[in-house]
Amino acid sequence: MISKEKVAIITGATGGIGFEVAKRLGQDGYTVILNGIEDDAGAERVKELSAQGIKAEYYGFDVTSEEAVTSNITKIGEKYGKIDVLVNNAGGLGGRSRFEEMTTDFYRFVMALNLDSVFFASRAAIPFLKKGEHPSIINYTSNAGWTAGGPGAGVYGTSKAGVHAITRALAKDLAEYGIRANAVSPGTIDTPFHAQIKATKPEVFASWANNIMLGRLGQPEDVAGVISFLASKDASFITAETIQIGGGQALGI
């Protein structure tokens, strides 16, 4: 049976941008499925959303594990009979390493976290997205996909360039089913991603706003607002597109 609810899956949703996206889609009327690897945090987040009247569930699995992603996404799809939106939010820098010292394990981990995860989750979701309403996949690329990232972030940049291309490839491949695929490219967003520099060099962190046209760092809500739009019927002719959310940062000042 196909659920009458709108169903959104957000990977990596126990903190930072992912949780804000889950909250926003919940406010938009979706039943939100949060994924993460910290089960306690996941339970807390579901409680927090439930208290706001949002229907939320948590599924703990590692997005780099093909088996875990496939079985969990399939379980979710079968439970609701469809998936309307898949937000491939999980990802990360994984650490900084220069190529000369880089281990193959590190390389594979960063690629798996940012790129394999998109492939695994999207592939598993396709049969259920086909039954969704104005269904879409939303991925995260990064300015690092163009610039190849800061010091030691070369693999991160490489993986995000891959996300840029797989987004377009998914858009082409799935268009015949009416499934759209788009990406967002957040600039500097004030999240735990930057916690270390915020704590150790607060003046450097604050100065980043000087390189942003709007004169401030982005907030997780800024990203959630874009994803809410891309998931909606109002974006029904937008596919294969990447939207920059950087307050103009990508253009330089």
């Binding site: 600039g187 046209m213 709007l214 982005g218 907030q219 800024d222 990203v223 607002g225 874009v226 809410s228 739009f229 939207i243 920059q244 959310i245 950087g246 307050g247 103009g248 990508a250 253009l251």
Partner: peptide, 8 residues
């Protein structure tokens, strides 16, 4: 909802 999008 587009409050951080400019220059696009």
């Amino acid at each position: 909802d587009a409050s951080f999008i400019t220059g696009n």
